[in-house]
Design a protein around this nucleic acid. Sequence first.
DNA 1: GTCTATACAATGATAGAC
DNA 2: GTCTATCATTGTATAGAC
Lengths: 239, 239
Amino acid sequence: MLRFKRLFETIVSILLSQRDLNPRVCNRSRMTDSTRQRILDTAEQLFADQGFHATTLRQITRQAAVNLAAVNYHHGSKDALILAVFQRRLDELNSDRLARLEAVLNASDPPELEDVLEAFIYPALLLSTQSAGDGGRFMRLLMRAWAENATQLHGTIARQYSHVMRTFADAVSRALGTSPDNLRQQLDFLIGALTYTMAETRDDQVEHTARALIRFGCAGLRDSALAANPQTSLKENIA
Amino acid sequence: MLRFKRLFETIVSILLSQRDLNPRVCNRSRMTDSTRQRILDTAEQLFADQGFHATTLRQITRQAAVNLAAVNYHHGSKDALILAVFQRRLDELNSDRLARLEAVLNASDPPELEDVLEAFIYPALLLSTQSAGDGGRFMRLLMRAWAENATQLHGTIARQYSHVMRTFADAVSRALGTSPDNLRQQLDFLIGALTYTMAETRDDQVEHTARALIRFGCAGLRDSALAANPQTSLKENIA
DNA sequence: GTCTATACAATGATAGAC
DNA sequence: GTCTATCATTGTATAGAC
């Protein structure tokens, strides 16, 4: 009973939160945005350090120097706050990815598979070490959130950024010279490897890890394409 | 109606309880084991359906028809209960993996890389569709748990099953004909892809998904080994 | 040893005054 | 928009019955 109410409110706040991305509706006063922002920053840091469950709203509001009720007023619920923390970072991440991909495609079409994968992988590994406050690793957050709230949060994120995935699938298929139809599963393998890796990569390993993962993913994608489309890819592979 | 279900579950868990415990510690009465087991089963089902955070101890104890305090008495805390739910399944999983790997190594040494990866991947995908009660997918649990409790639970699990990973790393290195030193990172890529995939694989896709992931992983591992050890692997690759 | 009833501090959320 | 006061619910601890 109570659960349905919470779920409803979370959904509502997710829907409402989309207007924040739109500059036209951003009419709030500076003081309000400052409170919103301060809650978001503090929450991200505490979540990364302690986990979602262990972090209380009272900790967040005390450290952010705002009232306890403010978090519910601005974000609706604790779950919605978690989602908001994610969306801010994932918006950055996917913007960065798309910008790099566009640069790659402008340089040469069809592109090199390595370059496409680098545009996808490198920003993610950078994000995992840069953000989340003082050296905290952001991507532990993603895995943590995934766990707690799996169906809802994962579904929301996947739906919201599906166009990014589709764009990259197209680019990969052009690089491989095959149809993008059967590519989705292999891209999921790559996403899994990337996500898992992000949770444990340190700042000084980013370059090395990115190169290893790009190589690993390229080999897997090329071989799988070779399986789906033997005659076309074979000669390309030999050449 | 509910009473028959409870009675049935009680009988089943009494029967099952005999194999699950270490014989040395098996001094408990059957009635006690039944309570422990019933808590574990009910918790697993509810965790998979609702997530860890959303599931309350009162829900579990009510549905399992045991007292609220029983869960703390038998497992210590909610977090420890979560860990216990995992260990039961992961013990099965890794036993299955090691048994299959041993069969592969007995058949031929050095083994085929595909066979080694199949021994690692296939049981996991099977588990993700079989267990967790009524068609629930167990591996959503793993991702969920990762999230909530990341440092502690992930660390515990990784430490506890590190020997399994080492055994597989050895087998892979023998199949590739290279040193196992630089293999760990590529195996992590594979684990990430596997974990991510398990969360979304349906019962009827297991065979197809397993084949695709094995192929993907083999290609990635072979190419990475080729990078680390050019001259040795090159001719093997051509041959 | 196992189980039960009960109590407790802390949490997320809310209502209403300002 | 913000705050104070308050609520129901949570995980956990304990005392005592079988």
